[in-house]
Design a protein around this nucleic acid. Structure first.
Length: 622
DNA sequence: AGTCTCACG
DNA sequence: ACGTACGTGAGACTC
C-alpha cells in the first residue's frame, strides 16, 4: 500500500516498535549514494508481534518527492505530487525510527541506504544487512544482490527495476515514476528483504557464523560509509599536466611505431597489432589467447624485445602511457563530486570470494605505484591545507599469516627476529648466507614465496621467472624439502576443501569452492589453487577489517576522531587525513591498532608489522 | 556483451 | 594431456 497521510505512517512506525524490527529500503534518483536524492522509502513489518519470524508480512511505500504533471503545468515542467506527507515531516518521523536502537532495521546492501540517510541527517542505529548475511553464509556461491537472493531462497522473481523506470535512453529517474508503480516495486523490495532475513538469520546461527557477521561484516558498514562520504582531494592541475605529458609521449611513440611498421594502424587493437607483428613482420608468436589469436600481452612483447626487436618495446611503452592517461589522468577528474570537490570511491563488502573489499567508481585500490611514471599519479592525491596524508601498511602480512596457520618454525622465527623473509627463504633453499645475498637469488626466492601463497605450480613459477618449467619444478621440490610444513598445509587445505566444499580463514570466515570436485583436471586444479590461497588472502583481509572496526573507537578515545580520519583501504594499507599538529600522536596509535588487530580474539604466533609515514601527497606518504 | 590488456595487493 | 600462478575493476576494441 501507499502511505499518504501522517496518521497512517505513525501507525506503521508504532507497529514496528511493537515487533522491534522493520525492513527498510530507500528509493532514490541515483545508484551513487553520494549523488542520490531521497525520493521515497518503504517499510515492511512482520505482523504477528509475538512472532517476528512469522510469514505474515505487510509492506508499504511512503512517497516523498515524486513529480507529476506535464510540461504544460509549470515552466520547469514539473510539480510535486500533492497527495503525500510533506517530506520534512515524514523524514522527521523516519529519523526517530531509524535512530531508535530498540528497533532492528533490516536492509539489503545497507551501506547504500546508510549513506543516503546520513546525507539527510539520519544516523541509522541497530541494523542487519541481508546482503552481508548471505555473503557470510555463501561467499563463493553466487552473487548477493537482492534479485538473485530472492530467486535462490524464496523462489520468487521481484519486479525488475527496468519494468518500473525503463531502461537505456528512455529510462527515467525514480522521482518520475508514478506513485502506484513505485509502490508496487518499493514495497515488494522491503517485503522480500524481510523474508530473506527470516531465512538467513537462522542459517547464520546454524553454521556458527554469527561471530564473523557481527565482528567483521556488520560493524564495517558505518565505517566504510564514513570513508566514502569523506572522500579524498585530488589536484586536477597535476593530473591535467600529466595528461599532457602522457599525450606527448604517446604521440611520439606512435609516430616511431608507424615509421618502423611502414604504415599507420590502431595500436590499441590487439587484433590489428597481432596481424602486424606476427603476420606482416613475421615475428615469432608466443602464447595464444583463448580465441586462438596470438597474444600481444606485455610479457610476450618483453620477450620479443629481449630478442633484439625494436618495435615491441615501443608498443609496451605506448601501452603504458595510454593506460595511465585514459584510466587515471583523464578519468579521475570526472569523479570529483560537484559539491564536496573530492573523489568518493564506493567499497563493495560482498564482492570477493576471499573477504577482501573491492573499490569502484573510481577504483582507488589500483592507483599506479610500480613505475616512476605511474607513481606521478599518486602525487595528485593530496591532503587538505593544514593536514597530512598518513599511509600505514602491513609488512608481508600474507606470509606472516602463512607462517602462523601452517606453523612453519623457520618462518615464524624469521618474522620474530625481523629477518628479510625472502633472503631467509633463499638462504634455506640454496645454502647461501643472508649477508651479501646476490639479488638474483633473492628475487627467485621472493617469486617462490609469492607462488606459495597463490597455490604454486611449476608452470606459473616458470612463467614468472622466465625459466624452464623443469627448473621451476626443481625449485618447488627443494622448497618443500626445506619447508615440509607448507606442503602439508597445502595438502590438508585441499583435502578440507574437497571434503567440505569450502575453506576457512583464521576468524572462521568461509570461502566456498563448489567446483573443487570438478572432473575437468585443469578446472579442478584451478579451484584447488584458489582454495589454497583463500585462507591466506582471506585471513589478511579479516585482520585489516578488524583494524578498521577498532580504529574509530581508538581514535575517539585518544581525542583524535575529529583530527585523524580514515579515508581509504588498499588491502594491506590504510590511508588517513590527519591535522598537522596531531600527526606525531596519531601515527603510533594507528600502528598499534593495526599491529594488534588480530588480538586478543586470536593468538597470532607471528608478530604483525606496520610501517607508517606522513606527507602532503600519497606518493610521498607511501 | 565479450575479449583483451593492464593497473593494484 | 590437460592449461593455470591468487584476488579484483576499468578502458578500448570488437561483434
Amino acid at each position: 500500500m501507499t502511505i499518504r497521510d501522517l496518521a497512517t505512517l505513525d501507525a506503521w512506525i508504532a507497529a514496528a516498535r511493537e515487533t522491534g524490527l522493520v525492513a527498510f529500503d530507500t528509493e532514490t534518483t541515483s545508484l551513487d549514494a553520494m549523488q542520490a536524492e531521497l525520493v521515497g522509502f518503504s517499510l515492511a513489518i512482520a505482523d504477528n508481534s509475538k512472532n517476528p519470524s512469522g510469514t505474515d508480512i505487510r509492506a508499504a511505500y511512503v512517497p516523498l518527492l515524486h513529480k507529476t504533471g506535464g510540461n504544460d503545468l509549470f515552466s520547469d515542467g514539473v510539480k510535486l505530487a500533492e497527495n503525500r506527507i510533506p517530506s520534512a515531516v515524514a523524514l522527521e518521523r523516519l529519523k526517530d525510527l531509524l535512530e531508535d536502537p530498540s528497533v532492528l532495521k533490516i536492509a539489503q546492501n545497507l551501506k547504500y541506504d546508510y549513506l543516503v540517510m546520513k546525507r539527510h541527517g539520519v544516523s541509522i542505529a541497530s541494523f542487519d544487512d541481508t546482503m552481508l548475511m548471505s555473503y557470510v553464509v555463501d561467499a563463493g556461491a553466487g552473487t548477493h544482490g537482492m534479485d538473485s537472493l530472492s530467486e535462490k531462497w524464496l523462489g520468487h522473481q521481484p519486479i525488475p527495476y527496468k519494468d518500473v523506470a525503463g531502461s537505456g535512453k528512455s529510462s527515467v529517474s525514480f522521482d518520475y515514476v508514478d506513485i502506484d508503480k513505485a509502490t508496487a516495486y518499493a514495497a515488494e523490495d522491503a517485503d522480500v528483504t524481510l523474508r530473506l532475513w527470516q531465512v538467513l538469520k537462522p542459517r547464520l546461527a546454524a553454521k556458527n557464523l554469527n561471530v564473523v557477521y557481527e565482528r567483521l561484516e556488520r560493524p564495517l558498514v558505518p565505517v566504510l560509509a564514513r570513508m566514502e562520504e569523506r572522500g579524498i582531494t585530488i589536484d586536477r592541475q597535476i593530473l591535467s599536466r600529466l595528461s599532457g605529458e602522457l599525450a606527448q609521449g604517446a604521440a611520439g611513440l606512435e609516430h616511431e611505431i608507424y615509421g618502423l611498421v611502414g604504415e599507420s594502424f590502431n595500436i590499441g587493437s590487439p587484433k590489428q597489432l597481432g596481424d602486424i607483428l606476427f603476420g606482416r613482420l613475421g615475428l615469432p608468436g608466443g602464447a595464444k589467447t583463448k580465441t586462438g589469436q596470438w597474444s600481444t600481452s606485455a610479457q610476450v612483447l618483453e620477450e620479443l624485445a629481449l630478442e633484439g626487436h625494436e618495435l615491441p618495446r615501443k608498443i609496451v611503452d605506448w601501452r603504458q602511457l595510454t593506460k595511465l592517461k585514459s584510466t587515471y589522468t583523464d578519468a579521475l577528474p570526472g569523479f570529483v563530486h560537484p559539491e564536496t570537490k573530492r573523489v568518493h570511491t564506493s567499497y563493495a563488502l560482498a564482492a570477493t570470494t576471499t573477504g577482501r573489499l573491492s573499490s569502484s567508481e573510481p577504483n582507488l585500490q589500483n592507483i599506479p605505484v610500480r613505475t616512476a611514471e605511474g607513481r606521478k599519479i599518486r602525487t595528485a592525491f593530496i591532503s587538505t591545507p593544514g593536514h597530512k596524508l598518513v599511509s600505514a601498511d602491513y609488512s608481508q602480512i600474507e606470509l606472516r599469516v602463512l607462517a602462523h596457520v601452517a606453523e612453519i618454525p623457520q618462518l615464524k622465527q624469521a618474522f620474530s627476529d625481523g629477518i628479510d623473509i625472502h633472503a631467509m627463504t633463499a638462504s634455506e633453499m640454496f645454502g647461501v648466507p643472508v649477508e651479501g645475498m646476490p639479488s638474483e637469488i633473492r628475487r627467485r626466492a621472493k617469486a617462490i614465496n609469492f607462488g606459495i601463497i597463490y597455490g604454486i605450480s611449476a608452470f606459473g613459477l616458470a612463467n614468472q621467472l622466465s625459466i624452464e618449467r623443469s627448473e621451476a619444478g626443481d625449485y618447488i621440490k627443494k622448497y618443500f624439502e626445506r619447508f615440509p610444513g607448507i606442503r602439508d598445509y597445502m595438502e590438508s587445505t585441499k583435502a578440507f576443501a574437497r571434503e567440505n566444499g569450502y575453506v576457512e580463514t583464521i576468524f572462521g570466515r568461509r570461502a566456498h569452492y563448489p567446483d573443487i570436485r570438478s572432473s575437468n583436471p585443469s578446472h579442478r586444479a584451478f579451484n584447488e589453487r584458489a582454495a589454497i590461497n583463500a585462507p591466506i588472502q582471506g585471513s589478511a583481509a579479516d585482520i585489516i577489517r578488524r583494524a578498521m572496526v577498532k580504529m574509530e573507537p581508538a581514535l575517539e578515545q585518544a581525542g583524535l576522531s575529529q583530527r585523524a580520519r580514515m579515508l581509504l583501504q588498499v588491502h594491506d594499507e590504510l590511508i588517513f587525513e590527519v591535522e598537522d599538529a596531531d600527526v606525531e600522536r596519531a601515527i603510533p596509535l594507528i600502528v598499534s591498532v593495526m599491529e594488534n588487530a588480530a588480538m586478543p580474539a586470536l593468538d597470532m604466533k607471528v608478530p604483525l608489522k606496520v610501517d607508517a609515514r606522513a606527507a602532503h601527497n600519497w606518493d610521498e606518504a607511501h
